[in-house]
Design a protein around this nucleic acid. Structure first.
Lengths: 210, 210
DNA sequence: TCGAAAAATGAATAACCATTCATTTACTAT
DNA sequence: ATAGTAAATGAATGGTTATTCATTTTTCGA
């Protein structure tokens, strides 16, 4: 599809594309059949490719699963990074953008949520899964805490504890995601966003509306 | 061990005990190896019994898993029921007791949390798992909303939306449980309790302290 | 256009695992 | 005590599935 200047680069792009294609198929299959039931055959069929293809590109099933988790993690992290480093946004705007992002189409896609929670459910027994996310979780928490600290100063919110607010918001978002995954008929994306805003409004009433 | 008056009752108690023994072993094994990797051999070995025992008492692996989820669900629900129907407690005391319970030893046991999230991670692909919990989730939400509504009246909290507060608290608790499971070194039980209290204090400042 | 090298295929393999059931063990009523 | 019944055992079975690799197809420089 995409043209490349030299042969080596074209091949490597193509290999990259194959890997992504397989990762996408994996996300869909985990959502459809569950992490404990997906087979290699499911994934390769979904991708429209042959049986042996995963081992060719990822060596093993386990490595494909790990790369799938990494893909989703990276996607989430990079979206937030763009917001944090946007020089045009004020502190309050960055926080608003963060929350909008947390409940945007890309993030609350139920297939991806299913993958998130499938892996969370296994972290206790497979620390590798956690280690993939540990760094970015710490980064995001650190950035968000910083934003809250700034807004506390800017808005003279004497009683706000930025770290506590960050822990609370993060846990709230996790819980809302779980709700969106398991009871999609109960909680709608917009409501989830409103709940998150409702909490922020309790901390920064002059900047956010419930 | 326990004496029984008649033979039939003794046998039946014994069968019950076997089932519970196997459920306990299942909880431990899911926590240790993950839902996607537990085998019947793991479970029977952990229980110190023979291979065929699960099929004898539960017919199949899937049924044992379902009973395990049901066991944990029932345990959680019955604990909350006792609180809701305690005639000696005021509304505020019931809410406090609910939160204390949510972050008590019994509930935040990491083995049990691992089981919870293992099943949540599979609900999209196995609606049966959700159907086991759906009723009790609705019950608990309804009870909690009612408590919040009562406290709103009793304490003249004009701005509180009981339903919103219930959704927010519930999601927050879910998120904190996830934190307790995956980053036990980061978030301690007492902190998690404090975070939950912090939120409630924003809604009912005259009744709860952050 | 052609040939070498990479990519992809899919049938065969070997490991794993839930379930079965013939046999053994434990219990209880007479 | 003993026969009869229920519970438990664990070796054997059959189905499933990740992985391998000999073969085929595609790509691309010369």
């Amino acid at each position: 599809m995409a043209a490349a200047k030299h042969s080596a680069s074209k091949r490597s792009v193509s290999a990259q594309a194959r890997r992504k294609q397989l990762i996408m198929a994996t996300i869909k299959c985990i959502a459809q059949k569950g992490l404990s039931a997906v087979t290699m055959a499911d994934i390769t069929t979904e991708a429209g490719l042959s049986q042996g293809i995963v081992n060719l590109h990822f060596q093993s099933k386990e490595k494909l699963l790990i790369e799938t988790l990494r893909y989703i993690s990276d996607e989430y992290r990079s979206g937030l990074d763009n917001i944090f480093h946007d020089p045009k946004k004020t502190t309050a705007e960055k926080i608003t953008a963060h929350i909008r992002y947390d409940f945007s189409r890309t993030i609350i896609d139920r297939n991806k949520l299913a993958v998130w929670f499938a892996f969370w459910g296994e972290t206790k027994s497979r620390p590798t899964y956690l280690s993939i996310c540990a760094d970015y979780i710490a980064d995001i928490a650190s950035n968000l805490t910083q934003l809250f600290a700034q807004l506390k100063t800017e808005g003279n919110y004497a009683n706000v504890d930025p770290e506590l607010t960050c822990v609370c918001y993060t846990a709230l978002a996790d819980g809302l995601w779980l709700d969106l995954l398991v009871t999609p008929k109960g909680l709608k994306p917009k409501q989830a966003y409103n709940v998150a805003m409702h909490y922020l409004a309790t901390q920064f009433p002059d900047h956010f509306q419930a």
